[in-house]
Nucleic acid binder design. Sequence first.
DNA 1: AAAAAAT
Length: 459
Amino acid sequence: MTDTIQTPDTPAATFTDFGLHPSILQAVAETGYTTPTPIQAEAMPLVMDGRDVMGAAQTGTGKTAAFTLPILHRLMQYANTSASPARHPVRALILTPTRELADQVSDSVITYSKSTPLRSTVVFGGVDIGPQREALRRGCEVLIATPGRLLDHVEQKNVNLGQVGILVLDEADRMLDMGFLPDLDRIVRLLPAKRQGLLFSATFSNEIRKLGRSYLTNPAEVEVAARNATAENVTQIAYPLAGSEKRAAVVHLVKSRGFNQVIVFSNTKIGTSRLARELVRDGVKAESIHGDKSQLDRMKALDAFKAGELEVLVATDVAARGLDVAGVPCVINYDLPHSAEDYVHRIGRTGRAGKSGEAIAFYAPEEERYLQDIEKLIKSKIPRGHLALPAVSRRPAAPVRGERRAYTPGSAPTRAVDDFFDKPYVPSNTVSSPATPERSKPAAESGKKSIGVLLGGGR
DNA sequence: AAAAAAT
């Protein structure tokens, strides 16, 4: 980590150059940020001019501030300090795909609007609707929401969207993935036709362009060099590991590398819960976050992680996009995501704000194909490594109380595992010279042999 | 393939 920042040959603008309203500029100054990121430098003047914008940018590129700051600036034209809700109609509506993201955008809006009379409210599902209803009835200029709960409020007539002059669709590609299109259509029909529209997405797919055509008017396109999300400050590596070794590998990495805050991505909600539970039993401070947990538990886990009370946050892809936790030094893909784009989003949780980060992937030999898909997308090779695990931690976990252990035939570890590590086959009941299985041969070597997966690829 | 989101 160096103190010097590599500057491109563009002149280093500062936030004072944008002509932001003084109250907003003051809040920016208090955050300590002075130099806008590329997406901010490009998008902010356009938004301040009232243009519609399609932006391609990962979160962590400063995207949230890139739309929040100019929106607040524009709203200051209407600002008043009256207590009447009628005097605080919703002027800007920001939609996000997940609840956590809505909460996070809300935090940002609160931060940047604190020296202004502008009010903001955030609404999303999974929590008591009452306080949200009260807040909406008190009035707010900026509303951040997930689509479902917003429509709920609309039906209950808690909010009127008839004066929304600015609409933001954040992580629009994700919203489409999640089937929000019908909800979005319903919401947009409630808005005035004359409005400013901003749409942010990781990529400009055909579907996104179509969405842009139907919701935006003559949008300017802002594409921040996709940074491949594999920013130079994120080191990537992939370790071939058998499923039975992955948990020990997490423990080993956390303990030996001294990572204080690691996000571990698993592909399933059940696997996520179980892994967190087992890690705790292994002496790792861990919690899980996924969509089957109550919103309260999700928020608790995230808050504990942000507060540094957890070493590991085990997560499904609910946390893959947009979540901004400062200073996460390492992301582990416990399972490889089956979509290469998800990989990019997941590892984007580390190496943020110019800090360095590590992205570690575990993979089984038959998953080599996914790794290659990812490499194709990010246009670079992910080095394969070999992780030497301390022999002792390879023992299977003792059963967690009240939980049935998966059935494992007592005397026969699966042959595939042993093949993979190029070891002689040793039934586990005869095992164990105490001076245990030093794996002399890098696992990656044997991984190379699985040519079958190469042939099997391609759709 | 699985995840997320109103109840």
